[in-house]
């Protein structure tokens, strides 16, 4: 028999957490299915960019991908939850929520459009980088920040009177370098790998937001797999995601260290008072999107910050 082929398309290099996770997944699937299912990984947007990959998946030409959560806005409103500022205080809280019943249910929010979320993959918590030191929300007023296309992120920067600008990722470095744009928000690993720290003298360790991915597949493909293979592939994915998430955590620490070591940008830490000011300024954004996302979902996510609310480790997706 010909093996079942899973084309896994992503847009980053092979040495990133996502790239390594995909390659690990490929090995694990080969192991667990004994070669009955073959994963082909296409890195660096070789197949499709993040904007078009989901459409290609619906056409049946790509079987798996892991776009950023913000990229799903055309398919569902609820995933905008993960863009809300200061919702999670750290990755542990994110993990607790994502593994909870509500977090797992969100994976199914795109099923009406023919897609199924299989799991979450971290990139990390977002920091603010800028050409000026940002300590309080007032410091950001009037500055231009690059954002990826997301209404929540737009509202987040407008909440501190800054100007959010949508610009393609490929142009960001040049625009920051020449100061055409003042700042941007990103994770430690992106700030390091895209060399943003070389052109941004200040990075505020704000941990104000989350940059995560969702591994998706098409319903048609997933349900078409024999039960046994689906279970095997799913098990391989769990393992690969744990592997990738650990790399992402390690990498955030490592890259932050490398940035600090380089001396090219100063890392600013917020005092509790300063942080409270940012939270106060940005929190109204939650209210704004409450209707689309659901108030109870926001509450549940926020509750994940306190450990006593921890939900017993979730069942495995499917």
């Amino acid at each position: 028999d010909d093996p079942v082929v899973i084309k896994f398309s992503h847009v980053v290099a092979e040495n990133t957490p996502k790239g390594q996770m995909a390659n690990r997944f490929k090995e694990l699937v080969a192991e667990k299915t004994g070669g009955a299912v073959v994963v082909e990984v296409y890195p660096n947007s070789q197949l499709f960019g993040d904007d078009k990959v989901l459409e290609a998946m619906l056409l049946g030409d790509v079987q798996m991908a892991a776009p950023a959560l913000s990229k799903f806005s055309r398919y569902t409103d609820v995933l905008a939850l993960y863009d809300l500022p200061f919702l999670f205080q750290d990755l542990d809280a994110v993990d607790r929520f994502q593994q909870s019943e509500q977090g797992q249910a969100m994976l199914d929010s795109i099923s009406r459009k023919g897609l199924i979320g299989l799991g979450y993959l971290h990139n990390g918590m977002k920091q603010l980088s800028s050409s000026k030191p940002l300590r309080t929300p007032e410091d950001a007023a009037g500055l231009k920040f690059r954002i990826m296309s997301s209404e929540v992120l737009e509202a987040q920067f407008k909440a501190v009177d800054a100007a959010p600008l949508k610009k393609p990722f490929s142009e960001v470095f040049t625009l920051l370098q020449t100061r055409a744009i003042d700042g941007q928000e990103n994770t430690w690993s992106n700030i390091y790998s895209k060399k943003f720290f070389e052109v941004q003298p200040y990075i505020t360790e704000s941990n104000h937001g989350l940059l995560d991915y969702m591994v998706v597949t098409s319903k048609e493909f997933w349900m078409g797999l024999p039960d046994e293979q689906r279970a095997q592939v799913n098990a391989a994915l769990r393992e690969a995601l744990d592997f990738g998430n650990q790399i992402a955590r390690d990498k955030a620490i490592e890259d932050k260290g490398l940035i600090a070591e380089s001396g090219r940008s100063e890392i600013l830490e917020l005092t509790p008072e300063q942080r409270a000011q940012w939270v106060e300024a940005m929190k109204p954004v939650w209210k704004k999107f409450e209707k689309e996302i659901g108030a109870d979902l926001i509450d549940a996510a926020y509750a994940a910050n306190t450990t006593d609310n921890q939900v017993a480790s979730a069942t495995d997706g499917q």
Binding site: F48, G49, D51, E55, L59, D61
Partner: peptide, 21 residues
């Protein structure tokens, strides 16, 4: 290759609509 004609059309559309440079 196993790619469908639909995804080739999609790829062409991506080529004309996804490169700001």
């Amino acid at each position: 290759s196993s790619d469908s004609l639909a995804s080739v059309a999609l790829k062409l559309f991506e080529a004309v609509s996804a490169h700001y440079t």
